[in-house]
């Protein structure tokens, strides 16, 4: 060390390290302090990032856009044909919804929150509500389309950190929508989720819709988690090896909902 620093500088360095480490005793207050005045700037930067990346994405995909456009034209024609029958089904569905009261807001008491910061490396997002607004660790977070985002992992006074379902710390009971095929959805990081412990005697296909199950008590029943992306069998294991592509996209999320009245104890 004496080749590198004078004694005074070593002392300053050690004091600096001790001060920074001691900030952990007031971690929530320190982080909350930074978040309070950083949040408006982060929201502005986030919105700018959305616009700029969208612009570049459009330029980069010009050749693909034409092909996609042709395909979409075909899809539109098919959909127009289906529209007529859907209109009838919609009417029926609305009647049933009213009767059963199964709308998102009717199911849950929700708090609308804005995404302030995104940590892609750690698969978490920072939202602008905290303990002061009645948020607690473990509360589920969803989008307005009932897509599962994750659960609150850390609560500060005015902010909370949401652990995404693709985070390595995340694991919850899930099932294939409309079937009895159940398993455990485990976050793998990098926007990947493993769908584990699905017995091979059940049916599991690519593009199956996976929803949350109330079995483990972590999330309410029926929240959309993702689509099955890969399915493979192994003679050694009694379970499928499968992967889910989450429906939630961290890049396109600027506002989400926290379910306040779900008791996961």
């Amino acid at each position: 060390m004496r080749f590198f620093f004078k004694k005074g500088k070593i002392l300053v360095l050690i004091v600096g390290i001790i001060i920074v480490l001691s900030l952990n005793f007031f971690q929530k207050e320190v982080k909350g302090f930074f978040y309070v005045f950083s949040a408006p700037i982060q929201i502005t930067f986030g919105a700018a990032g959305d616009k700029v990346s969208g612009f570049f994405e459009a330029i980069g995909n010009l050749s693909e856009l034409k092909t996609a456009n042709d395909e979409l034209q075909k899809v539109i024609q098919e959909m127009l044909a289906e529209k007529a029958s859907f209109a009838e089904l919609k009417k029926e569905n609305e009647t049933l919804r009213e009767a059963l009261q199964v709308g998102l807001q009717k199911d849950f008491q929700l708090a609308f929150v804005t995404v302030v910061g995104k940590d892609i490396g750690q698969e978490s997002i920072l939202i602008n509500r905290g303990a002061g607004d009645g948020l607690l660790v473990g509360m589920p977070v969803v989008t307005q389309q009932k897509i599962l985002v994750g659960r609150i992992g850390e609560v500060l006074e005015n902010f909370s950190r949401v652990v995404l379902i693709s985070n390595k710390e995340s694991a919850f009971d899930a099932k294939v929508s409309g079937t009895e095929t159940t398993g455990v959805a485990r976050g793998q990081g990098n926007s990947k989720i493993e769908f584990d412990l699905v017995p091979q005697d059940k049916v599991l296909k690519v593009d199956d819709l996976v929803v949350s199950s109330s079995l483990g008590g972590i999330y309410p029943e029926g929240l959309l988690a993702g689509l099955v992306k890969k399915v493979s069998r192994n003679d050694v294991s009694p379970f499928y090896q499968s992967e889910i592509a989450p429906l939630f996209d961290i890049q396109d999320s600027n506002a989400v909902f926290v379910i306040l009245n779900f008791n996961n104890d």
């Binding site: 950083s38 700037i41 982060q42 929201i43 502005t44 930067f45 986030g46 700018a48 990032g49 959305d50 700029v52 990346s53 910061g117 995104k118 940590d119 892609i120 490396g121 920072l126 990098n190 926007s191 961290i250 890049q251």
Partner: peptide, 19 residues
């Protein structure tokens, strides 16, 4: 740090946001 957690999130290179 502000840019890293807001602006750069939308610019992934092969699925990764450079730190």
């Amino acid at each position: 740090a502000l840019l890293q957690t807001s602006f750069f999130v939308d610019f992934r290179i092969w699925g990764v946001v450079p730190n």
